[in-house]
Design a protein around this nucleic acid. Sequence first.
DNA 1: GTAGGGTTAG
Length: 735
Amino acid sequence: MNLRTALPAALERNRNFFLSLLNASTTLSHLAQAHAQIIVGGYRNDISTVTKLTHKLCDLRAIGYARDLFLSVSKPDLFLFNVVIKGYSTNGSPRSSMSLFAHLRKNTGLRPDNFTYFFAVSASAGFRDEKVGTVLHSQAIVDGFGFDLFIGSALVDLYLKFSKLELAKKLFDEMPERDTVLWNTMISGLVKNCCFEDSVLVFKDMVADAEIRLDSTSLAAVLPAAGELHQLRVGMGIQSLATKLGLHSHVHILTGLISFYSKCGDTGTATLLFDQIDRPDLVSYNAMISGYTCNNETDSSLRLFKELLALGERANSSTIVGLIPVFFPFGHLGLTLCIHCFCVKSGMVSNPAISTALTTVYSRLNEIELARQVFDESIEKSLASWNAMISGYTQNGLTDAAIHLFQNMQTSKVQPNPVTVTSILSACAQLGALSLGKWVHNLVKREGFHSNIYMLQSGVSPSGVTFLSALYACSHAGLVTEGDRIFHSMVHDHGVEPLAEHYACMVDIFGRAGKLEKALEFIERMPVEPGPAIWGALLGACMIHKDTRLAHLASKRLFELDPENVGYYVLLSNIYSVDKNYPQAASIRQVVRRRSLAKTPGCTLIEVGGLPHVFTSGDRSHPQTKAIYAKLENLMGKMTEAGFQAETVTALHDVEDEEKELMVKVHSEKLAIAFGLISTEPGSEIRIIKNLRVCIDCHTATKFISKITGRDIVVRDANRFHHFKDGICSCGDYW
DNA sequence: GTAGGGTTAG
């Protein structure tokens, strides 16, 4: 648009003219032209015109320009201050916002008003904790804005952003009046803190309040909670409410319902709703893609993803996260590796949401090393990614690693939230053995997570937590008698009913100290049925003290109570192996296999002609299987001639050497390399990705292959890159 | 006397 020609020359250039000129400006260049006209027209000192211009500049992210303009005004009024305070904050400079706010209070005769406080509080959400916000809160109360709805909502939002649930709830309860936005803020904030049940409760309170109008935001905010809780009735109730309010075709609500039905396993209804959206946007596509993914409908998921790309829409990180099969009960390693590969290539892997999703899915696949690798390589570690890695360790039974990482998190100055604490407490319950009990307790106390109706599902009451931390301390210090005494005192003197965590902790105290019989006696005397946490604690102790008999007993119970948890089987099998009882160890692994709980086998990915090919060990499913095995046979002959000997040390203990040789010969990386050799140009580089650490036999074999074929072979394994060239590997045989 | 500044959601 050429503003000069757009102007009828006769039009009078008054203030309204310049204001509408500014309103019509949509680019920085428009604003610069308008600014020039304002100067020429003699309106450079007109405060309302300058305020409007400053506002528009901030909106277009020209904060430097806006600041210069602000500084050129000799006596800025409160309006202009407010605009610039907001401008700094929306341009990512909360510090400048606060400096200007302080300057306004100290050095001008102006008094901050409700707008000023609202902008300042919003800006303070940009800091790393809620401290500045709380100071503003008290100042606002002093200045008489304690009950302002805008400021109140911004504060509730801020407290919830930093998981200060107690503070948010207190403020919310104390507000003399609550409007729709305040209610909505509370609900969505609880959802963000994974307090799903509470958010539904608050929503129900809101519905019950006849004075309060529900809007699309209210319904859209609570829908994720209904989905997470799999509460079909709640979700359908929201749906009929939406119809009653005439909001049923609102895109946010339809999208929310798609997520909801998908989470409840009903992709049929979700699909119908998706088809009702006139022009689905990226968020709607993402919801549907993720819905298909989490219901294991990979084909539909990929089909919709392609449809999205065909529309010319750019997939964002949420799209990819939705494609990553985080929800599959037994995962989908091949697909995950493909997506991982795609993310590395497109640079999206550095996105915190994506690395978090990859960390989570690898953890669930028991690929904890791959999970850790992704975590370590992510440059910007969000709270969610710390949580994912910690709970990954917890779920894989690696309690010590979970605690260790939790400590690292503390040194990295990342504030834990209730999700973190829940993970850590569940680690406590798992094997009982945490030295951090006291510390966790202090944290819970300091952060106000406890005695809070919103929050933690662990069911540990504050006084229960206090005892728990004391018991942890005993467990750590090996104070058996002391622990026994504390437990007794807790029950008899303080009337605290012990929870599974307390019992598990006691078993751990006895078990760690080698008093396994005493631990068993304790379990047998428990007034409640011992759960997995208790037997898990005993099993862990048996592992330390190599007590096969008790281990067997504990595992038997665990298999009954928690048959899906592969970790116990592995532990037991290891105990037998240590005892050199290979037939028993093998039979345990047999059970695992029979129940298809086996660890996902090693697999290798190679990309040829833009298509990923995934091989598992002994794989014969590839269309070119015959050629691949023939190539491998041919290679083995040449390798043996060149002095290659199969390495078998790392293979299973209980098979004959010849059989072992047969087994390693068809490891997935060898198949992938053989395929690479027959399907790519001679002399070109071969790149493969292996989900596990490459085994010594494959490593040696690859060195030979690189020499014999004259190919460079790059292997990315769970630990590192290996660059094979002319019979030598870049890792120096150390990995 | 007037203009110029405000929140939550899929």
